[in-house]
Design a protein around this nucleic acid. Structure first.
Lengths: 247, 247
DNA sequence: ATCGGGCTTTGATCACCATCAAGATTGCGT
DNA sequence: ACGCAATCTTGATGGTGATCAAAGCCCGAT
């Protein structure tokens, strides 16, 4: 099928990949952009770059040149301590921006690895920076996105500092569910892209604890687990778990 | 002494409080600002605002109008979960910026409370935002500061997710020490501004564990503890503790 | 100077989760 | 379709830090 690609097919593909036509626009970019402003943004953002499952989009230490927006797929970001322990700092799905940690030190401080075959849009930072000086809403947008990341990290700190294993897992499932819903996927049943170990690293737990807790939730009728397929059976029950922690 | 204040004293005081004369300039602001640019910044930033020990600079939920730079003193920021548990998200000393979490939601998401009599400079955000469009290094500076906060939060996540109590406390002491040093204070002996409970909240530990661990470090000859006065006796030993965690 | 409340220390016990271990299942590559 | 490696589940045990408790200390208020 690929052999029959004609020039107009390529053009069509490029068109589809322009931000102005992208269904994720409202996730990556401010929605107040005029047509002309959108065009300027379009010109900066590279065509989608495919990343195979297991591949790194970037690694800690590499020089910083661009932020990346997930177009399709799923990523984890993680930092590694001097003595080699990995901490997953986030899972990132379509429309989310990665690489903001790199601005301060001019190199990435995380690894970003695709957990399924994915595609990202490249936002060259220097260019976006100067464009954001001409387009106030764009500048505001980047400040907001970075601020949101800070708020999110504070939430994780609360989770890691105060919650018990069951609460962490319940909060994690609800968070995923909500993010899938925003993207038009089912919020009641979804496929985990990450291993139990990666979940555990993110939540400050060991993989066995993750596995056990999921089994326990299943026994309690809160969820149904089939390997990486999760079905939420009692969302309210999960929410109660998160808030009832007298830890 | 205060009764003899003359107009020229007030002028002098205002002069001293201008960013251009502030010894913390290189911590709060980019150091590439021209004289003229510095003047424009000076005009935006309000005079120092005093905050008494125990008072809140702002609280979660209050509308966002400004970022704050610590001029003198010491602050904690903390988030509170729905069911009332507090998580300290950071301790902030002179030259550090607070309030960046508020940009995304347009209200503060943390409480910021002074842990000693303090003074802050107010950076009205909208004004700084538009000024940063005219002064590229200023815009870059804000992106950098926010990025640094993200990197810092990732470090805390690593600490909370992977480290044992002793490693957390050692890392915490070394971090404080290093930040005091940057500011020209002794890195070998310093006064803790926060309670054991606040340390514990930040590090995901209970106050008893903090107390016990400090005592243990003292028994091992790593530090000397006299209530809130800490003396570091074996910095290398502490560093080894942080890195040797096979957790 | 004295009192009182908040903060800190230290001890004893317990719960939660990590660790170790073995087996089951999945899914990928050939 | 097969086989192997990676992932997941479940069980048994132990350690770390939480919890409960009580006493001592420091500091600020009167």
């Amino acid at each position: 099928m690929q052999t029959a690609l004609q020039p107009r097919d390529i053009t069509f593909k490029q068109l589809r990949q322009a931000c102005s036509n992208c269904s994720l626009r409202e996730l990556c970019l401010p929605n107040e952009l005029s047509l002309d402003e959108m065009k300027q943004v379009d010109e900066l953002i590279g065509q989608g770059r495919p990343i195979k499952r297991g591949e790194a989009l970037y690694r800690a230490g590499e020089p910083f040149r661009a932020l990346y927006a997930v177009r399709v797929g799923f990523f984890k970001t993680s930092v590694v301590s001097e003595d080699g322990r990995e901490q997953v700092t986030g899972f990132h799905m379509s429309g989310e921006l990665m690489g903001m940690d790199a601005i301060s030190a001019d190199h990435y401080t995380c690894d970003a690895v695709a957990l399924e075959d994915s595609e990202v849009c490249e936002l060259p930072f220097e260019e976006m920076e100067s464009l954001s000086r001409k387009i106030p809403v764009l500048q505001r947008h980047f400040y907001r996105v970075m601020s949101r990341e800070i708020v999110r990290d504070h939430g994780v700190m609360l989770l890691l500092g105060n919650m018990k294993a069951e609460e962490r897992i319940a909060a994690f499932l609800l968070n995923l569910s909500q993010r899938f819903q925003v993207r038009g996927y089912s919020s009641m049943s979804f496929h985990l892209r990450m291993t139990r170990e990666e979940i555990g690293s993110y939540l400050g737990l060991k993989l066995e604890t993750v596995s056990r807790t999921l089994s326990k939730f299943q026994d309690q009728g809160l969820i149904k687990v089939q390997n990486r397929l999760i079905e939420l059976l009692d969302v309210d029950g999960l929410k109660q778990l998160v808030n009832s922690c007298q830890g």
